[in-house]
Design a protein around this nucleic acid. Sequence first.
DNA 1: GCCGTTTTCGGCCCGACTGTTTTCAGTCG
Length: 610
Amino acid sequence: MPADRDFTAIMPLRRVAAMRTGEKPERGRARMKNSEIAVLFNEIADILELREENRFRVSAYRRGAQNIEGLPGAIEDAAADSALADIPGIGKDLASKINEYLDTGKISFLEELRKETPQVLIDMLRIPGIGPKTAVLLHRHLGIGSLEELRHAALDHRIRELPKMKEKTEENILKGLEFLERSGGRTPIGEAYPLAERIIDELGKLPEVKRITPAGSLRRFRETIGDIDILVTSPKAGTVIERFTHLADVERVLAEGTTKGSVITAGGIQVDLRVVDEKSYGAALCYFTGSKEHNIRLREIAIQKKMKLNEYGLFRTLRSGGERRIAGATEEDVYRGLGLPFIPPEIREDSGEIEAARRGALPALVGMKHIKGDLHFHSNWSDGAASLEELAEYGRKAGYRYLAVSDHSKSLRIAHGLSEDRLRAQIAEIDRINGQTRGFRLLKSSEVDILPDGALDLDSSVLEKLDIVIVAVHSKFKMPRPEMTRRVINAIENPHASILAHPTGRLLGSRDAYEIDMEAVIEAAAATCTAIEINAHPMRLDLNAAMARKAAESGVMISIGTDTHKPALEMRHIRYGVYTARRGWLTKEQILNTRTANQLLGILHKKRNR
DNA sequence: GCCGTTTTCGGCCCGACTGTTTTCAGTCG
């Protein structure tokens, strides 16, 4: 490793750090204030922890952050309705800090804390294996002022001079720094999920493995994954863990115990494997699936009922002082033991699911089996890889009833967007292909550019010949918020527009959402019977789950589309869209492509015929 | 700092692994 390596490669960290500076509400940020406030509350928690403040005070800020981030609506709305105190974990103090941030763009308490806290302490907390105690120790005794200085201190063997620190500590710090630099934090689910499938597939071949399943944020289908958790039942844990730490994907072994193995893959992703007994499988699955906040709620319920819940089971405390297992083999048993129905993993975020479960009001979530087709697809008429005939073939093979051919429109020259004339020719060609097939249908569509003034890129005379008109922004991303909002609402109000695609334009890890008032857009979509897409591409997932929930609650129909350009690789992304919908509490009734082609066209054409 | 079908005060989830130790603190999830 060259001695002068800098850490500019840690981009996601830097972005987080930039958000932390807080003073200027960031340019180009359409995100609701929820996540900004969550980041700030987490920073307060970090700093309080470094200062060895009361740990319950620390977790109060973390819980507050989590609940604000998971809120389906905008925090501004809750504040305007004086309803902040209704959010679990938000009391008088946190509410006043939220109001202060919304009014002034800063939290003076945090400003004060920052003045007194060297940035390097916060940076060090991002290194795996370094917590608040170690960070303070390194800073105080060695005068470490940056991650680069920390690296030098480790290389110069100065860290081993400290109490309870030896060679191994230095080694781990260097590896932690390297990991941070390479992985930059969280991994998009589109990358993590296939890797997990590969590992599960490989380990599943072992005769010693009885059951194997993903857990953690992967099973909850979060947009990005911190690390991959895999749960196994086996009578021979040692054999399974040994095989796991020797898989081809493994670059480094972090831990290898009798119940747990932990590795870093060549791609820099951490994978944790846990082996449990058959009789604890359900309790362990529940525990390792999380979220942490959901688990804490479950344990609190257990305590209220004079029980104890851990990863081994649900136990009743006996008067004799002993305990008796009442559940553990399946998740259903555990929930039942707590007096709750089974709660699907995707909504275990402590965002109202426990209360809904108690009321018997959990939604019947949409599933992959309900999906009858894909509503966003490109052919080689624009920038896709496959011909129309091939698309029909792919669609049929996937078991779909229909697939919407939605090539780009003429303004998008770089993607060979179709002019009115070429689109007419494509329509005729699709009619010809549909005439030859039964039980499957290519839907005539177009992904029409929304021009800067909100007009559509194609003439009405051709739009009215399409089954579905998808509208989307592909240019001039940096418009000011009011103009961008007006632009998109103009497009939505066009009587031909049926679906608004990737509505915020964000690309996970590379491009922020453009500046747009999504609340207003959702309102306009509801008023005009326009559907909004969950773009299922794993780098987009746009709408995200919280906004999809909001949109559906407002009565907007949701369309799931993969935006596939290369069918062999991308069609399967539909699952990320479906699981995002599940995270947004959506039922099949709220999703367009759970309907037959005629049903969904009937819904969309209501607008045209108004 | 939050919260209350035991409570407005006194609690607040629980266990494994590592690295350094001879019994445990720190970190993680």
